[in-house]
């Protein structure tokens, strides 16, 4: 094992739906979600996902958006000209020159989650690298309440990275390790990541194992997002997206505290839930295109 551990590790990917022939489609649209960590593009042929690309966000939004869409259409035979309308979303949405409209990630996320999980979804909790979003939506995927916390690192992937770094544990193992404790410790009491880190150092000095400290932090994080969910009104049909949704230590404690389980991904679902925002964008693009055609 090397000493340099990559704490935030994920692979860039792409996907083409073999069951869709875009040449037969009447409308091709796309959604591009430029986030702070990753950029996603989803291409839609009529009502089906045709392809998607998932890339690391580079130093500027226009290039990141272009990289993502190019990666998505790679090998499909599609060119940018074939895509009739593009909606930009995410943190870098206003800097995508080839997008016809920018729509907030809140609205796109709700719409995309509705597509991925179906109309049953009411509450979406998106815990990303640098923000945390709680969204409440109706059966059509329209937002009925939201909050987005990007001011404070507590409750975000960044906070978890600080702890992974402190304990020299790869971020992907944090969840599993936090569950390997004999007794659930009380949660870390500081919300602020800076203070929580000092608290963690203190716990280690008291002789706590790494697993115990991780358990205490995962449970603090779970508790924190529960309070965010309470603000927007929680309904039991909830789903989790974003990087932290892959951390079983946080997810299982969250489910325990809420007393309900997250809605599982449908069996035939082939898409990474991280694509929710981009898919929502592509769906908005389709509606906007239909509206503009009607206007003529």
């Amino acid at each position: 094992m090397t000493t340099q551990v990559e704490y935030w590790r994920w692979t860039e990917s792409r996907y083409t739906n073999p069951e869709v022939d875009w040449r037969k489609a009447s409308t091709i649209t796309a959604g591009i979600d430029v986030g702070s960590v990753s950029s996603k593009a989803a291409v839609m042929a009529d009502n089906e996902i045709l392809a998607y690309g998932l890339m690391r966000t580079g130093s500027n939004s226009p290039d990141s958006a272009l990289n993502a869409i190019n990666r998505a259409i790679e090998g499909t035979g599609l060119t940018m000209k074939d895509i009739k309308f593009i909606v930009g979303t995410g943190y870098g949405r206003i800097n995508i020159p080839f997008a016809g409209k920018a729509i907030t990630e809140i609205a796109c996320h709700a719409r995309g989650a509705n597509y991925i999980w179906g109309p049953v979804v009411r509450t979406i909790l998106d815990m990303g690298g640098q923000d945390c979003k709680a969204i409440h939506c109706d059966e059509k995927g329209k937002v009925t309440a939201f909050l987005m916390n990007d001011k404070c690192a507590a409750g975000t992937g960044r906070g978890m990275e600080v702890f992974a770094d402190l304990l020299q544990v790869p971020i992907t193992q944090v969840g599993e390790m936090s569950l390997q404790v004999d007794k659930e410790p009380p949660p870390v009491s500081s919300t602020c990541v800076v203070f929580a880190k000092s608290e963690g150092i203190g716990l280690l000095r008291q002789g706590w194992s790494k697993n115990m400290v991780l358990a205490a932090y995962c449970s603090a994080m779970a508790h924190r997002v529960v309070t965010l969910l309470e603000r927007i009104g929680m309904e039991k049909e909830f789903v989790l997206t974003g990087g932290i949704s892959k951390n079983i230590g946080v997810v299982s404690r969250l489910e325990k505290e809420l007393g309900i389980q997250a809605v599982p991904l449908p069996k035939d679902q082939k898409f990474d839930p991280q694509l929710a925002g981009a898919i929502g964008g592509a769906l908005f693009a389709r509606d906007l295109l239909a509206k503009s055609r009607k206007a003529f």
Binding site: H136, D138, K142, V143, T144, A145, F146, L147, N149, D150, K151, C152, A154, S190, T191, C192, F195, R224, T227, L228, R231, I232
Partner: peptide, 18 residues
Amino acid sequence: STSYIANYGYADGSGEYY
């Protein structure tokens, strides 16, 4: 049309500010 409650702001260690 959809109606929604938009919560602008954040919660940090010192409290909720929305």
